[in-house]
């Protein structure tokens, strides 16, 4: 169960982390490279630092608003776990797909990914969805590889179809 209020705080934390990363990078990586001081020619840190400070002030203001505001900002965004299951599964499968894409290549991973997504979206397991998935995967591959000359990831086995 994730309410609107919690999500708002999560975003505040997200931006706070980003601001922290900016300052951390300025004091480590940019210092080491010697680009954290000097004039406009050499100082690459001044501008991101200024932006980070401005965001920081805005985020603090927003945090104060979150704190004092009793009314929910928009009440319909409260989310139950049941509702969240499908998008989470979707993103999980997609992330797994991207992870395997570089290793196994487009042709081995895409059809199973589409089948999995179809199942998550509520399609019943059948030959029909396998055929659909194969069609989608290979039709798109054909369009991009044969006509637009894009070489889709072949993975460690170098699986590419010479159309």
């Amino acid at each position: 169960m994730l309410g609107n209020k919690q999500v708002n705080w999560l975003v505040i934390v997200f931006f706070a982390v980003i601001i922290a990363v900016v300052f951390r990078q300025i004091h480590t990586s940019m210092m080491e490279q010697g680009i954290a001081t000097g004039g406009p020619y050499d100082n690459a840190a001044a501008y991101p630092r200024a932006i980070a400070i401005i965001i920081g002030m805005l985020v603090m203001f927003q945090a104060a608003v979150n704190w004092f505001k009793r009314r929910p900002v928009s009440p319909e965004t409260d989310l139950t776990l049941e509702q969240a299951y499908r998008p989470m599964a979707l993103l999980g499968i997609f992330a797994l797909y991207l992870g395997l894409l570089g290793v196994l290549g487009y042709h081995l991973t895409t059809t199973p990914m589409i089948i999995a997504l179809l199942l998550v979206c509520g399609a019943r397991p059948s030959l029909h969805i396998v055929v659909t998935a194969l069609l989608i995967a290979f039709a798109l591959a054909y369009f991009f590889e044969a006509h637009l000359k894009v070489v889709l990831p072949g993975g460690i086995y170098g699986l590419n179809i010479p159309w």
């Binding site: 042709h107 081995l108 059809t111 199973p112 089948i115 396998v130 194969l134 072949g154 086995y157 170098g158 699986l159 590419n160 179809i161 010479p162």
Partner: peptide, 12 residues
């Protein structure tokens, strides 16, 4: 799936 994968492999 296996058949498809094999086909792709022999092609590539």
């Amino acid at each position: 799936i296996v058949a498809g994968a094999l086909a792709a492999m022999t092609l590539g």
